[in-house]
């Protein structure tokens, strides 16, 4: 299904971009008091905008098959190169947010289910409600204000101190991994420090959603007969909860986490802007501001691919959690 979905997305995105009113070349360069119509015409030609829609679509799709996402209108560089530069930052942030979200959500979800209607449960669920409701940029700015401006504990923005960044050899593009590979503990600590606040801001929604879903599925599982049987056999409560209940309760949770991985990778535009995190979200925001249609198309394609792959991953994990499910 992956290939037809991606093809559908490609056609949809391309068509949508062409339905936006206005001429992108005119929007980008036509404002200049000194641009000539000849120049605008030449740029349209270079970007294939002078060709009929179906020819443009054919050229776009044939380029896509070869892995060619086109050339950025504003930066005069291949779109794929721009995406490649930004992808590691987005992956690293998504990973940080994922770790934060899971570390927070799983204990809260379990405890809330086991101690249903207790103070812990009510407090946790209220916090989860706030976590879902609060916009990312507000939470981000609050974190910056508290931990960076007031307490001066963590940096406000970026991925690494620029001077440390100069000395860090770029191997994978993932700063934490590169710091470990090159045995650079200063860079490692600095990268982790830079990752903490954006990870919390991005991972808060994941933590809140996963905690709520896990709680409700745990409550359901804990009422099942086989749990009563396990308790009747005299198994310790901890064993019953972690070994018997959690594994089954994780199936709906994994579905939610799978969707959320897509959101973490593709829905991070605001957080990346607030924390000056140089990922794909920032690239997309810049491209939208500058009407750089080829970059927008490229980024949307990668986002779509991310969601498709996250869903595929969820299906694979299902089979691991419950061998009765087949791919």
């Amino acid at each position: 299904m992956t290939i037809p979905i991606m093809l559908g997305v490609a056609i949809l995105v391309f068509t949508a971009m062409r339905f936006i009113p206005g001429d992108p070349v005119d929007v980008m360069y036509g404002e200049s008091g000194f641009i000539t119509e000849d120049q605008l015409e030449r740029m349209r030609k270079e970007l294939n905008l002078d060709k009929p829609f179906h020819v443009q679509l054919y050229l776009f799709l044939s380029g896509l098959v070869r892995g060619d996402l086109g050339i950025s209108y504003t930066r005069h560089r291949p779109v794929w190169d721009l995406i490649k530069e930004r992808l590691p930052a987005t992956v690293e942030l998504a990973f940080g947010a994922f770790i934060f979200g899971i570390i927070i959500a799983i204990p809260i979800g379990i405890v809330s289910a086991v101690k249903q209607y207790s103070t812990i449960d009510r407090t946790s669920m209220a916090a989860a409600f706030v976590g879902i409701s609060i916009p990312g940029f507000i939470l981000g700015l609050m974190l910056i204000l508290i931990f960076s401006v007031t307490l001066k504990l963590l940096p406000t923005a970026g991925r690494i101190d620029p001077i440390l960044g100069l000395r860090l050899k770029d191997i994978t593009g993932l700063h934490i991994l590169d710091s470990i590979i090159t045995r650079n503990p200063r860079a490692l600590l600095d990268s982790i420090k830079h990752l903490i606040l954006p990870s919390i801001a991005l991972g808060a929604v994941l933590a809140a959603i996963v905690a709520r879903v896990l709680r409700s599925s745990m409550i359901e599982v804990l009422r099942a007969d086989y749990i009563t049987l396990a308790r009747a056999k005299g198994l310790r409560g901890f064993i019953v909860v972690t070994k018997h209940a959690l594994r089954n309760a994780l199936i709906p949770t994994v579905t939610v986490v799978g969707i959320q991985i897509g959101v973490l990778l593709g829905g991070n535009m605001i957080i990346e802007c607030v924390f000056a995190w140089p990922g794909m979200g920032r690239l997309a925001v810049d491209a939208i501001k500058e009407s750089d249609y080829s970059v927008i198309q490229g980024v949307v394609m990668i986002y779509a691919l991310t969601f498709v792959m996250a869903n595929l991953l969820v299906d694979i994990i299902y089979t691991f959690l419950n061998p009765k499910i087949e791919l």
């Binding site: 960076s148 401006v149 802007c273 607030v274 000056a276 925001v285």
Partner: peptide
Amino acid sequence: LVMPDEASRVAALKA
């Protein structure tokens, strides 16, 4: 440094 959000730029200056 490229920092698109104005509030973040100001926070970075204050920090």
